[in-house]
Design a protein around this nucleic acid. Structure first.
Lengths: 131, 131
DNA sequence: ATATTTGATATATTTTAACAGATCATTCTT
DNA sequence: AAGAATGATCTGTTAAAATATATCAAATAT
């Protein structure tokens, strides 16, 4: 990915869904209004590079210019690291973690009180970097 | 390359200079006004993706979104095919070809009249594809 | 069943890229 | 020395992205 302008919109949407975050969440992260993200993802607008970069970065993507003859090689590399993030185990874990965050309702039986903050420290997102 | 917005402008300029074509020539190829190309290359504007794609394609580049963790690998690949185009022999040949086009002044001695169009059919740009 | 979240859409306003077209100084070329 | 060609820069004008804000239907969650 990608050459045409629709490829880019599609990539953004797929990347966001792969991270399973909502458009509103991405909006918070980037400052781009949710409504606008919707339009962008549906390919309805010819976005500016700054917007593209902002969204891409929030999705752990980088905008690059690749020599055309190198594109196939680049794609196969990109595909590999895509695969890591989207292989079933990873996707399921990501969703499970999100789900678990919506369960804090367990009445905390006295004997387990010390266990107050059991949220997972072992996220799959070990690939973050800067920001 | 690239992440930031200036990297992109810089890449575009380098790519154009590597092909040793003028801004006006690139303008002809893309339809983007020369003055605007100048502004773009100096990083003075936040261009739209369609413009970026148009310029990139004319320079045999493709805009891609790559996973951040794959960036180093991608860069090293891109660098390789960069090197091919910019190794001395290639650069010099490109320039020599341009120079030769400015020599048609040879008074065409009668015996060689049939040689009317001696321009090189063997360009280095054997990597073109579509369009 | 009710409430929340989500993506899509709409309106109105501001901002700015992109355009056409021209000019200018500098660097080749002749 | 005269004449291109090149990159940078300016002036208007127009089209469209980007913003803020709000609403809506459908899917999720409580």
């Amino acid at each position: 990915m990608t050459h045409a302008i629709e490829d880019i919109s599609a990539s953004l949407r797929r990347a966001r869904e792969a991270k399973s975050i909502s458009q509103r969440e991405l909006s918070r992260l980037t400052g781009v209004p949710q409504g606008h993200i919707s339009k962008i993802e549906s390919g309805a607008v010819d976005i500016r590079v700054s917007s593209l970069i902002a969204l891409a970065r929030a999705l752990d993507l980088e905008v690059t210019l690749v020599p055309r003859k190198a594109v196939p090689a680049v794609q196969s590399i990109a595909r590999q690291s895509d695969a890591e993030r989207s292989r079933p185990a990873a996707r399921n874990l990501a969703e499970m973690q999100r789900t678990l965050e919506n369960i804090p309702k367990i009445p905390a039986s006295p004997g387990l009180a010390a266990f107050s903050g059991p949220r997972p420290a072992y996220t799959l997102d070990d690939e973050n970097g800067d920001e």
